[in-house]
Design a protein around this nucleic acid. Sequence first.
DNA 1: ATATTTGTAAACATAG
DNA 2: CCTATGTTTACAAATA
Length: 341
Amino acid sequence: MEINTQALLPHYPLHTPKYHPESLSLSPSLPQPASLPLSPTTPCPSIPSSYLHSSSTPQVYGGSHCLSPSTASDQDDLTCLSWLHQRGNLLPLQPLPRVNAQILDPITAQSLPSCPAKPPYSFSSLIFMAIEDSPEKKLPVKGIYEWIVDNFPYYREASGGWRNSVRHNLSLSKSFQRIHRDKSQAVGKGSLWRVCPEYRPALLEVLRKTHYCHSTNSNLLNNTALLEASNNGQIFVNDYLEISDLDSLSSNPPCSLTPEHEELVPMDPVELTEVSGEDSEKDPLADSGYIELHYYQYQQYQYLVLPGDAELDLETVEILQLDAEAQEAAGSLLDLAGGNH
DNA sequence: ATATTTGTAAACATAG
DNA sequence: CCTATGTTTACAAATA
C-alpha cells in the first residue's frame, strides 16, 4: 500500500504507550503493546539526562522509574508519564537540571534557557508526577521536594514558600493519601504519600491539558530538527487512535481527551517503520478500519505520521487543532519526506 | 458577575 | 530546643 506520509507534530499524548496492569486506570482493555525499540547502548536522546544519572546516584525514594529507559517493564506502563519528557516541545517549560553535555544532543542543549522559568504545572501535578515517578508510587514529603527540585530548576532557586504550598496541597487535596510509615523501617520523619487511585485519571488529564496547552506555544519546532528527523527518522510506533476518535477530536479540543476515548487497536507488534522513502510498505492497520497514528521519535521531537489512505488532509489536520506554527513545520517535513499535499 | 481553582503566606500542633 | 511535617485558615489571583 502506498504510504503518503503526513508528518505532524503531536501536541499531547493521544495515547500513552505504556502498560502496567496494576496501575492501569485509563484503558482497562488494552492489549500489550509492542515493546519500544530503545537501544540498550544508545539512550533515547529525548530522555532527560537527569534520569540517566539515577543509576549512578541511587535515590532513597527511587527518583527514576518509568521515566527512565531502563527496563522493558518500565516501558510497558501504559500510564507512564514518559511522554512528558519524550515530547520535546515540553522542554522550554521544563528545563532539566544536571545537564551532561556529553549526553545531551546539540538541539536539546540549544533549547535550554539560561534561567529556568516557572513550570506551568500546578502543585498537584508536580506532586502527582513525583509520586508516579517513584518505584513504590509513594513518597515522603522530602522525596517530593527532591523530585521537584531535581526536575524543575526553577524550584531550586525559588524561596522556600513553594514547599509550604506542596504540603498545603497534600493536606488539602483529595487526590493524595497519607500512608503511615511502617515504624519498623521508618527512615526520616512524616508519612508517605500516594496518589488516590480514583483521582489518578483526573490528575493525568490535568497534566495532559497543561502539557498540551503549553506545548502548542513552543518555538522549538524548527526546520533543522524537522530536516534531521526526516533524514534519520528513527523510529517506533507506539500510539494508536481509533478512527472514531477523530470525531471526538473535531468536536473537542485535543486536550479534552478523556480515558473513555482511548482504545488501543489490537494488532501485532510493530517495531520499526521508516518515515521516508519509497520502501514504506506494510501497514498492519491497512484494512482494519482504523487510522494509524505513528509517533516517530527523533531526538527530542516526535512526529505524527498518518498513512496515505487515511484520507486525512491538512484540513483534517486542523481538526486536530494544530496551531499554525506546527502546521508549517509539519508541512516542511511533508515536503522533505515527499508528501503529496 | 460569580464560583471554583490555584498559589501563597501564616499560625499552630506534632513528632523525631 | 530545633527542624520537618502536617493541618488549617485567610486571602489574592487566575480561571471556568
